[in-house]
């Protein structure tokens, strides 16, 4: 919950909206139960409970929420932009290998180098079982499924090191199946592409 990129930041905002909404609804239900408990017995209008509270209320809330979620989801999708960087991530039990479209032949293990401030598309694949690529502070997660390639858009606002995890259980080495994302400034990125170790 310390976002360091646009995708993670959007999702963090979404979370706060969801939390506030959920708390309000929870309090509403709790209040209704307390009211129902104290109310003297007698007939009440069935429509009010079943149709208004049971049908109309959740339908309205959910429709709004769904639309919000859809719009956000569309914004997070990998779409064509001019300054796009493309990298590959291949997971196996239990390490990660990363390749770079801008530096063919270059492979790094358990370290993914990206430029800061530019959108990066990670093409995720697996060499054995199902894994999942997740850099919590930069974006949501996407699975590495054998035989399939999934593309995730990530972006880091600032240079720095970000922890990356495998997020799909994959056997005894699961806990330590991690990697580091190193976001460079423009200069550092060029240096990396030239093959100099930063």
């Amino acid at each position: 919950m310390h976002p360091a990129g646009p995708a993670a930041a959007i999702i963090a905002t979404l979370w706060w909206v969801l939390l506030i909404g959920a708390t309000a609804i929870f309090l509403l239900v709790a209040g209704l139960i307390a009211w129902a408990w104290r109310r003297p017995p007698g007939e009440v209008q069935e429509r009010r409970f079943v149709v208004w509270l049971g049908l109309a209320f959740p339908l309205a809330v959910l429709a709004a929420l769904l639309a919000y979620g859809l719009v956000i989801g569309e914004r997070l999708l990998p779409r064509a932009t001019p300054d796009l960087v493309e990298v590959r991530a291949e997971a196996r039990q239990w390490d990660w290998r990363f390749g770079y479209a801008d530096a063919p032949g270059r492979v790094t293990e358990n370290e993914l180098h990206i430029p800061a401030g530019r959108p990066v598309d990670v093409a995720i694949s697996s060499a054995d079982v199902v894994h999942s690529f997740w850099v919590p502070r930069l974006a949501g997660k996407l699975d590495a499924v054998p035989g399939h390639v999934n593309v995730l858009r990530i972006e880091a606002d600032r240079p720095g090191r970000y922890e990356g995890l495998n997020a799909e259980y994959n056997g005894p080495g699961y806990r330590d199946h991690r990697f580091t994302v190193i976001a460079h400034d423009a200069e550092g990125w060029q240096a990396f592409l030239r093959g100099e170790r930063p």
């Binding site: 993670a8 959007i10 979404l14 979620g69 999942s132 919590p136 997660k141 799909e168």
Partner: peptide, 13 residues
């Protein structure tokens, strides 16, 4: 919450 796709991308697993 987790039925909302982008949130699930973070919270999943």
């Amino acid at each position: 919450m987790v039925a909302i796709v982008p949130f699930d991308w973070q919270a999943h697993d």
